[in-house]
């Protein structure tokens, strides 16, 4: 169960790290090798990106046997934010 969950979170990390830091990681190796996983977590947190840090901390909680923080929606703009873009302009 833990490996499946690790792989799922690592897949999100893979996408985010590639987008934010242009860095490619090995998802399967992360699930198998704790040292590699912690190095990736440290690197992800250092990037200063909220979404990336949130995913890294979820993975860290899994490694530490803690309760994994609930998954929140990705950083898509909220409905309110979308509405605000129509103040005084349409396009």
């Amino acid at each position: 169960m833990a490996d499946t969950e690790k792989t799922a979170i690592a897949a999100h990390l893979y996408v985010s790290l590639r987008r934010v830091a242009n860095r490619v990681i090995d998802i399967e190796w992360m699930a198998q090798n704790e040292e590699y996983a912690r190095a990736i977590i440290k690197f992800a947190v250092e990037q200063g990106n909220d979404e990336l840090a949130r995913q890294a901390l979820r993975y860290q909680a899994l490694l530490n046997g803690e309760q994994v923080p609930a998954r929140t929606e990705a950083a898509a703009p909220s409905v309110d934010t979308v509405k605000k873009r129509y103040i005084g302009t349409l396009r």
Binding site: V82, K83, K84, R85, Y86, I87, G88, L90
Partner: peptide, 9 residues
């Protein structure tokens, strides 16, 4: 309300 409130399509 133009310029103060949103007019969403």
């Amino acid at each position: 309300g133009y310029g103060r409130v949103a007019f969403p399509p």
